[in-house]
Design a protein around this nucleic acid. Structure first.
Lengths: 341, 341
DNA sequence: GTGAAAGCGCTAACAG
DNA sequence: CTGTTAGCGCTTTCAC
């Protein structure tokens, strides 16, 4: 239906340049075995004819697509955007293209669908925060399909993954709040099926322990990383007879929602309640008060995931395990010293 | 390097089902000329063998890729995310895949590169806010390559594009500010090479005219839709001997930055200065004060762009022109009645 | 209805 | 160094 016959192929180029099309193919693939003079002539011809190699054909014949797939849950928060920025940069350097899949679209399909679907379409897959990672991982590992996970861990399986020091980040953040004088800190968790969410919770608990502050189960609200959870969680805390003086949410989106809940009760951030987030998504610096948070190097995570995937592509037998990038506390204006009551 | 020979092809399926592979192909393509009984048998076999058709091969042989390309400038603000959501939904329904290109990556390449690159990779292209649209449009039109523009207009060329009623939106917004009592309104423009940006400016001017408020050139700051422009523009307004009482920025990102500038001077939004944005990106409702803005139906724009592209794919000769979706004022907390001085 | 045959444009041996 | 020869997995005629 959309067939343009004016396409020029290597055959045309070969004819024009007076060589066999095999030679043209070599030039395209930067094969060393071409006389520089010939190469130049072919290149010139390609330029003149405005030739572009057909990717489909290359893939079919070569077994490689020069495309990698990216599976993301959503594009809503800018969190993913940052990661893509990193992936994209690496991909561009390597001459690869990006195929985007949103989980939403394939969520209804059976497990293994993704790796099936992707078979032949892409050389490898980067999965960001997959919902049911074990489903995918099983079938991908089994099929020996190259993939890398971003920001996930905890399935027990040993697989290439890029994350950040969630435990340490949460530990440091909690410590920071404690240093500010806060002893009653409400914690809103992420989706606890994700290792990253568990680690953040554990880091929080560890910091309490270190500072000999008793852990109170009621000061933990189990969320799912969704905005609403931040609001609901904070509201529950604030309605307690003895509410916390600080709230630490497991991601920025929930933290921002928590700030809303605080303000809705006529309280101020940070004067009355300190609020801390996690991620440092772009809008963290845009909201008012700007959000104190734990920065994950999202862009870099994307970059490194891509590099690891390339490594695997080059050497499928190499074993890669989880790589953790350092988190960092970014102090802004949503946290303050505890006011003496 | 990444060749899995365990892949099953239509040949295997054909053998198993006891038919020729031509018949299997027909089944895949829902060809009517297959006995229902045979079809069922083939389908069953495909299921059993876990067969997935190779897209590359289909494309090569059939001339169609079932993939569309999306060219975006960036993924930073959530603006694009909303659009993608819409595109993605339509694509999913049609069994199409999405190839993502960021302009940044290809910005250095010569004009026409994109359509070249894309030739053979995708069946069509959706361009969001292209920087030098006329470059692309020329070569794509010439090559008769199917494409749709989102949120752009004004190259003079007649081409399929989806936008929103920018003029009307800006007109209504300005009117709203005037109704609140504001007479001195600072306007921060977008990148005036984009028709959408010009329209917003014109809508603003028209509203002043309608209300018999003199237009003051100094109260227009020429920006580029970038965050910094919002800050710089607002700062310039505020440093005037007689600063405006309201600021209307051509997009939300600049509006949020403008709010920062206002606050940095110890002024309050909206008590001292009202601020209005344009777009209604997700974070518009998250910032404090939440941003009064002109809503563009971004997701719907993505959906419709996709539908139009499909139309063009089906019927390349059909002429499509610009489609405008209605904008809508969303009143939140960054605007207020002018306080009597 | 179904099978057989001819490519789609290119890569990857294998000869020279 | 370069030409030749097989396919890659599938769609599409064209026969039967």
């Amino acid at each position: 239906m959309n067939k343009r016959k004016d396409k020029i192929t290597i055959v045309e180029v070969a004819a024009e340049a007076g060589v066999s099309f095999g030679t043209v193919s070599r030039v395209i693939n930067n094969d060393v075995h071409v006389k520089p003079q010939t190469r130049e002539r072919v290149l010139e011809t390609m330029r003149r004819l405005n030739f572009v190699a057909n990717r489909q054909a290359r893939s079919l014949a070569g077994g490689r697509t020069n495309t990698i797939g990216l599976l993301v849950p959503d594009l809503g928060t800018g969190y993913i955007g940052e990661i893509i920025r990193g992936i994209d940069a690496e991909l561009g350097d390597a001459g690869y293209d990006l195929m985007l899949y949103t989980t939403h679209r394939t969520a209804t399909k059976e497990a293994g669908y993704v790796s099936n679907l992707v078979q032949g379409m892409v050389d490898g897959l980067i999965l960001v925060l997959p919902r049911n990672p074990s489903d995918y991982i099983g079938s991908m590992t089994q099929r020996n399909f190259p993939f890398v996970l971003i920001d996930h861990q905890g399935t027990g399986e040993d697989c290439p993954a890029i994350g950040s020091t969630n435990w340490q980040g949460a530990f440091n953040a909690t410590n920071y709040l404690i240093k500010l004088g806060h002893k009653r800190i409400g914690f809103i968790t992420g989706w606890l099926d994700l290792g990253a969410a568990v680690d953040r919770l554990e880091g929080f608990k560890a910091a309490l322990r270190t500072n000999k502050i008793p852990f109170i189960q009621d000061l933990v609200y189990e969320g799912t990383f969704a905005q609403l959870d931040g609001y609901t969680g904070a509201s529950r805390f604030l309605d307690m007879k003895k509410p916390p003086t600080a709230i630490f949410a497991s991601n920025d989106v929930m933290a921002m929602a928590a700030m809303d809940a605080v303000r809705e009760r006529g309280l101020r951030v940070p004067e009355d309640i300190s609020v801390m987030g996690f991620d440092d998504i772009p809008q963290a610096s845009l909201v008012r008060p700007s959000l104190t948070t734990v920065r994950q190097p999202l862009e870099q995570m994307g970059r490194i995931a891509t590099q690891v995937l390339f490594d695997i592509l080059k050497n499928p037998n190499l074993k890669h395990n989880r790589i953790e990038l350092p988190t960092e506390i970014i102090i802004r204006n949503s946290t303050a010293k505890l006011r003496k009551a």
